[in-house]
Design a protein around this nucleic acid. Structure first.
Lengths: 106, 106
DNA sequence: ATTTATGGTCAACTATAGTTTACTTATACA
DNA sequence: TGTATAAGTAAACTATAGTTGACCATAAAT
């Protein structure tokens, strides 16, 4: 594994993967890597999170692999648990306010 | 509907719902409202998007209602089509004065 | 008043995400 | 070495998301 370092705890072993650049455009892989980075950074195993959130390990692995054929519900649960969140970005050009206009604001 | 206005096109009718505040903390409802706002702002009907993305109308409606029991895949397809995107936010970088989201979706 | 287009719901069915259990692989440390 | 812990995979099964098609309600045109 290239982008991972190894670290030892009291008796535990955790493979730490680095946090991706959050400034770069969103992608499912970026999300996946961020989740893994947060989890390992918090020294939690897949089973730890799996049991805490009542999500199966295979599903968690799907999420951390960037598989998008998972429930939004499960992704959000994991993100909230790990302290990750989304921010919405719209490609529009600064629409002023609620005035009904013929112009397209998007 | 309270937060919607009515506008007429050449022969078409469009209910425009307002874009939510993107600066506020993320929530599934915020996402749902942003999607509806973008779609109606672009003068697209549910069927328009439904057919363009090969997603059924009931599923689209679930998404626009803030239902999180939908595939991440489908949500991302809709967002990309409408020009919406995510930005990842991690709480490890001192978000001292951010308000905590009070709405629970789970 | 009738027609037309849209949003929204519902039921039955299909497709597939998710689960459980077990097994394998890999790493760290004694 | 060998042992223990964690990551990852696979198969069979279950749960449920998603689809189709019909239907209703509303609003806006004619």
């Amino acid at each position: 594994m290239s982008d991972s370092s190894v670290k030892k705890t009291l008796g535990r072993v955790v493979k730490r993967t680095e946090m991706p650049e959050l400034s770069k455009p969103f992608s499912p892989m970026q999300l996946a890597k961020a989740i893994t980075a947060k989890r390992t950074g918090m020294k939690l195993t897949l089973v730890d999170v799996s049991q805490a959130l009542a999500i199966s390990k295979p599903t968690l692995i799907k999420i951390e692999k960037g598989d998008v054929t998972v429930q939004l519900h499960n992704v959000l649960k994991v993100m909230e648990y790990l302290g990750l969140s989304f921010s919405l970005v719209s490609d529009d050009i600064a629409h002023s306010n609620d005035e009904v206009s013929d112009e397209q604001w998007y």
